[in-house]
Design a binder for these strands. Structure first.
Length: 118
RNA sequence: CAAGUCAAUCGGACAGUCGCACACGCAAGUGUGAGGAAAGUCCGUGCUCCGCAGAGCAGGAUGCCGGAUAACGUCCGGUGGAGGCGACUCUAAGGAUAGUGCAACAGAAAUAAACCGCCCGUUUUACGGGUAAGGGUGGAAAGGCAGUGUAAAAGACUACCGGUUUCCCGGCGACGGGAGAUGCUCUGUAAACCCCAUCCGGAGCAAGGCGGGAAGGCAAUACGGGGCUGCUCGCUCCGCCUCAAAGCGCCGCUUGAGAUUGUCGGUGACGAUAAUACCAGAUAGAUGACUGUCUAAACAGAACACGGCUUACGGAUUGGCUUGCAUU
RNA sequence: GGAGUAGUACUCAAGUGGCUGAAGAGGCUCCCCUGCUAAGGGAGUAGGUCGUGAAAGCGGCGCGAGAGUUCAAAUCUCUCCUACUCCG
């Protein structure tokens, strides 16, 4: 991770839920709020509705991998919470990455969006 | 070859690129990295705290015999019973003359017998007596069946089967076998209370321990509040509130009733011994993504550890045995 | 991770071995009240599913699921499933 830490505590998550803007698509819900740091902090939330522990663990890894491979084109200084919806349990990596990038773009977190889509 | 039965093993593989956690290392890097059920939390242990793990009552668990084990409700080997042609499988399987309770409906009657029937008698459309062979009810109706016998019947008598019991033999034992005796009036239920035998103190790693700041307010040595504890006894702990949030860091945490390979003992569960290596340890929680090839792939993810049980699971392989058919 | 509680008609629920397919309430239908409705009062029926039948009715299965004990199970025992609560 270049400039990203993870959200750890319950009060941090609740701060993002209360203050952040949310945008959703079929697979994910993304909450974003500005922090006063020069790094990003991201947390993943996968509830029991998505599936058993194997499925939840796989969903978390897919999201983490998608973020890792796309981190170089992101702005910094935000707290992000990504909530997986029930449809994620059948998703592939391509679905996860496409869905995550879609929401990042709608939140205008992509850096210099013109050279991203080359 | 077909059908069946029992047991064991595997639990995607290989290559490349990019990543994650831990250990070692100045660094580059190297090494290791989820399961047969990691699951359910149903049992049993270790470990930690409750003073020592205490006394009594209550409560709970187990329940054919012998063994294995740290222990078990588990496992192994047997016994009895049930099922199957068989290999084999299943079995909460102590006590119902220690006591108490319950047994609806039906039925004449449910632990106690005469409703119908049969036979005899009389004062003959009825009454009295005898009778459990027959009918019917019921889950269960007075050992079964055949004969003798009788007014009609009845273990009243006899043979066979079943039961109970005494002795002998075999076995550590459950129990088995044999010989004899006894005509046998004894319902079911203990996963109803209970009796007998054996065992169980409670809580759980969010156990528990260590470290760390300054300030303010209130109370005062006995009341009170807790803990072991469901009750009694007994023992034992404690100033409270605010900043302060079930907050932070570290330990517990992984070398173990362990693993692999071999030898020996044992029918077996298992035990003994030698050698070898160290083989997950996170703390919002690490094993993933992409590409290619291959018959395409299930159930499912460690959180203190271990022994079992139960439940879920696509498919593949191996071996033993049984029955049937064919061939030699 | 650990400890516990519950599951019965559409909903809330009583029933803890036998005449209980299951009390009761909401709900549903009809009547009264009102100009009409709501509220209120009174009466009543069926209760799920399968089979049969024109219907009434009759029979089987059904108290989260599956086994077991018992003559008999919503009730007792065991194993699973689902939902919920608690932990310093």
């Amino acid at each position: 991770m270049l400039f990203t830490e993870s959200l750890k505590k319950n009060h941090q998550f609740r701060f993002v839920y209360n203050r952040g803007r949310s945008i959703a698509n079929r697979y994910l819900v993304m909450y974003v709020v500005k922090n006063s740091l020069d790094i990003n902090r991201i947390g993943y939330s996968v509830s029991k509705k998505v599936g058993n522990s194997v499925v939840r663990s796989r969903v978390t890894r897919l999201l983490r991998e998608s973020y890792r491979l796309n981190e170089h084109m992101l702005e910094s200084g935000f707290d992000i919470v990504v909530v997986a919806r029930a449809a994620m349990k059948d998703a592939s990596y391509a679905d996860a990455e496409h869905s995550l990038k879609h929401l990042l773009k709608k939140h205008r977190l992509l850096k210099e969006q013109k050279d991203v889509y080359a």
